[in-house]
Amino acid sequence: MTDRRRFLLGGAAVLAGIAGTLAACGADDTVGIVTGGTFRSRYRHAATGWTIARPAGHAHDRLPVLVALHARGGDHGAVFTNLRLDRVLADVVGSGTAPFAIASVDGGDHEYWHPRRGTDPAGMVVHEFLPLLARHDLDTRRVAFIGWSMGGYGALYLATVLGRGRVAALVAESPAMWHRAGQRVEGSFDDDADFDRHAVLPRASRLDGIPARISCGDRDGFRYVVTDLRARIRPRPAGGIEPGGHDDAYWRSQLPADLRFAGRHLARP
């Protein structure tokens, strides 16, 4: 069965098994409201935390959603505590970007956001997390993805699976990718065959037509493969090779442009 069929068939069968627990995590009249909870994922076989941030004044609106995929070693909360996505969201919406929500979810320390032995975090996103977001009054008919490092790869991979009909925009910062299986870091793929099945470069044409912003720091070891990826996609992605390394400081420097890009395309019908 192809990757696309694996993801698009049978998602409704797991909806009844999600036990999402909503809990208010924090609110600020200027930043917005952040809520979250946990469900037991049948795809990851693990308790899976999640967070939703909405801009101030839009707590009850049916907003489009940007799904945020964390880096290796992170979790759903790290994109807010380390990158302060909720505050950047407030800033860009306050300066005129159409409002949208940001939702993050646990993808495991090094599960790398693709189907593999014993876990399937990508299947969790498609068949469990997106339906959960819809039940929380977010518009998931077309979504955007953003990710950093491991999550940048995940954003690219999920976009190749869901395609133009479902993905409104894609933002990948410093995506953790390699040209060949032998270059991969330990834990990123089960084996060479797993790498070959799920590598993004050979399937880059599946990203054609999806509005994309793909960037990497000029001191980042991934800059060469990112340059290659950018050259394979049509139209050419926004972003580029920018001053910086593979770290939160660089990713924070890109966030305003990243969120404005995602918001602009989420607002389009």
Rank of each mutant, 00 (worst) to 15 (best):
Arg223Glu: 06
Arg184Pro: 02
Thr119Lys: 12
Pro202His: 08
Arg203Asn: 10
Ser188Tyr: 05
Thr51Lys: 14
Ile233Met: 06
Gly32Ala: 07
Ala27Asp: 08
Arg141Glu: 14
Arg5Pro: 01
Val105Ser: 03
Arg184Gly: 00
Val79Lys: 00
Ala249Asn: 06
Gly147Phe: 02
His265Glu: 12
Val105Ala: 05
Gly108Arg: 00
Asp258Ser: 15
Trp251Lys: 02
Ser253Pro: 06
His246Trp: 04
Gly73Lys: 00
Ala267Val: 02
Asp109Gln: 14
His136Glu: 14
Leu9Trp: 12
His179Ile: 07
Val92Lys: 06
Val67His: 00
Gly36Asp: 00
Thr227Met: 11
Leu15Phe: 08
Leu66Ser: 00
Ala267Thr: 07
Tyr112His: 14
Ala212Thr: 10
Gly36Gln: 04
Val126Leu: 08
Gly165Ile: 12
Ala172Thr: 07
Ala193Asn: 11
His110Met: 15
Met150Gln: 07
Ala168Asn: 04
Gly118Met: 07
Asp28Asn: 15
Arg135Val: 11
Ser41Leu: 01
Arg5Met: 01
Gly108Cys: 03
Arg62Thr: 14
His110Arg: 15
Ala27Ile: 04
Val167Trp: 07
Thr160Asn: 05
Gln183Ser: 13
Pro235Val: 11
Ala24Asn: 13
Val34Tyr: 00
Thr38Gln: 13
Asp247Thr: 06
Gly239Tyr: 09
Ile33Lys: 14
Ser95Asn: 13
Phe195Cys: 09
Ala169Gly: 12
Ala231Leu: 11
Val161Ala: 14
Ala98Trp: 01
Cys25Ser: 13
Met124Ala: 12
Val185Pro: 04
Pro211Phe: 11
Val88Leu: 09
Leu170Pro: 09
Phe145Leu: 10
Asp258Lys: 08
Leu158Cys: 02
Pro202Gln: 12
Pro269Phe: 01
Gln183Ala: 14
Ala103Tyr: 00
Ala90Pro: 02
Ala19Leu: 13
Val167Met: 13
Ala249Pro: 02
Gly96Ser: 11
Gly187Ala: 06
Arg87Phe: 02
Asp29Met: 05
Arg117Val: 11
Phe195Ser: 09
Gly244Ala: 02
Pro115Gly: 10
Phe7Met: 15
Asp75Pro: 01
Leu156Trp: 02
Gly152Ala: 05
Ala249Arg: 12
